[in-house]
Every structure is written in C-alpha cells, then in structure tokens.
Computed example of a mutant assay.
Amino acid sequence: MQSAVLTLKDITKAYHDTVILDIPELQLQHNIYWLLGGNGAGKTTSMKVMAGLIPFKGDIQLENNISCRKQPVQYRRFVNYAEAEPVYPGFLTGNDLVSLYLKTKGNGYQDIKELIELLSIHTFIHRPVSTYSSGMLKKLSLLLAFTGTPKVILLDEPLITLDKQTVPLLYDMVESFYTKHGVTFCITSHQPVSAVSIQLQVQERNIVKI
C-alpha cells in the first residue's frame, strides 16, 4: 500500500467561536487533488493550515517523518504554497523574492531561469512588485511555488487573474512535477474539475469537497 505524503491528525481550526476545520484524520497519497467549495467554505484556511502558515490544533506529518508542529522550518521547506491573491512588500523586486526563495529552498527540480522564461516573467521580474498587475503577481507567486525540491505544492485558486496563454503552461508544469519529480498537488478551485483539461481532468477520483 502506498504510504501517505501528508497525514492530518486531529486538526481543528477556529476563528473566535466558529470552527472552520475539524478533521479527525486525513491521509493524502501521491496524487493531484482538487479541493472544491464555495466562498467561505474554508478552502484557503485548509491550504494555509497544510502549509504550516497559521496556528491550528493537531499535527500534520510529511511522509510520516517531518512534523509540521515539531519541525516547522524543515516542513515548510518541502511544502510550497501559492496564495490566491498574493501580496509582497512593494519595494522588493521579483528577482529579490526569487533569490530569497532559492536561499531558503535550495536548488530546484528545474532551472529557475527556464521557468521564468516559460511564464514570460523575464520582462518584468527586475521591477518592484508594487508596479505589478494582479496577473503579474499571480505569475510570480506560481513561480515561487515551484522553487526548491518540494514534496507537496499547494495552489490556492491558481487560475484567478491568470491569462489564457499561461493556463496550459501551468497545467504542463503540474503534470511534469507530478510525473517526473513525484510532487503531490492540492489545488483549490471554484470551477468544476470536468471543465479542466489535460491530466487534471483525469484526476476526478481525487476531488475533496468541503
């Protein structure tokens, strides 16, 4: 039996007196998962909990070896996350952020320059992010999510503000990192999986609805 990449155990997350997440146990094997749900369903909260970015009760184990609670730095090195609406310090350039991520994540599965060219970020990566459009910020956040050697990549609403030319490129990146490098993906989306093309359409058995 395939071992779990992520194991969520006794997870609860509440804001004030409202419980947002209550997950007694959930195991995710190597695969591509779509987390579907409407606004306010808790998708982003789920992603941030799995990324180890917000406090929660319980624990998450990466490959039954690295604890999010006990080894948070090591855990976050192998679990990458791209926000739905990324925000970065406006005075930093895209190059600054890429350099920071490379220092903390290490060398990646794919040359970062190739990914920059693929996503056509090279035309603006030298500029401060305060000058970026929402689409530019989205491309940068996706690029950063593919840095290093992650075991899990969490993509929160990756299609929002993304231009039509970049969507198939993103699908190719997901498929490549999944098949060639063994990366597990968890992706949130408002749209039905049946509307999505390429390999992601095949993964309908891995829909998690909340």
Rank of each mutant, 00 (worst) to 15 (best):
E83M: 03
K105R: 14
G135M: 06
M136T: 03
P72H: 14
L119S: 06
A145C: 03
S133N: 08
I60A: 04
G58N: 11
S133C: 04
E114H: 08
F56P: 12
H122F: 07
P55C: 04
K138S: 07
T104M: 12
G52D: 13
T131W: 06
Y132D: 12
K138V: 01
D156W: 04
L142E: 13
G37E: 05
V129C: 11
S67A: 03
D96G: 04
L142H: 11
L62M: 08
F78E: 12
L162F: 06
I121T: 07
I153D: 06
E157S: 03
A145M: 03
G38I: 00
N80M: 04
F146E: 04
K48Y: 08
P150N: 14
L97E: 10
R77C: 14
F124G: 07
V98K: 00
M50L: 11
K138H: 08
I153P: 09
R69L: 12
V49S: 05
K151I: 06
I160M: 07
E63K: 03
F124A: 05
T131L: 09
T45S: 11
Q61W: 13
P72L: 07
L115N: 14
T161Q: 15
K105Q: 14
P128T: 01
T93S: 07
Y81M: 02
Q71C: 12
M136Y: 10
G38N: 02
T147A: 07
G37D: 08
S99F: 11
L53W: 15
E83V: 00
K70Y: 15
N39Y: 01
I160H: 13
L115V: 06
L115W: 13
I121Q: 10
I125D: 09
L162K: 01
D111P: 11
N80E: 09
Y81P: 08
Y88D: 15
Q110N: 08
L115S: 13
C68E: 09
S99K: 09
G148P: 13
G58Q: 05
T44F: 08
E85F: 10
N39I: 00
G37W: 01
E157A: 01
E63L: 02
I160T: 09
P128C: 06
P55V: 01
L102P: 15
T149A: 08
K103P: 15
Q61I: 01
A82L: 06
C68T: 01
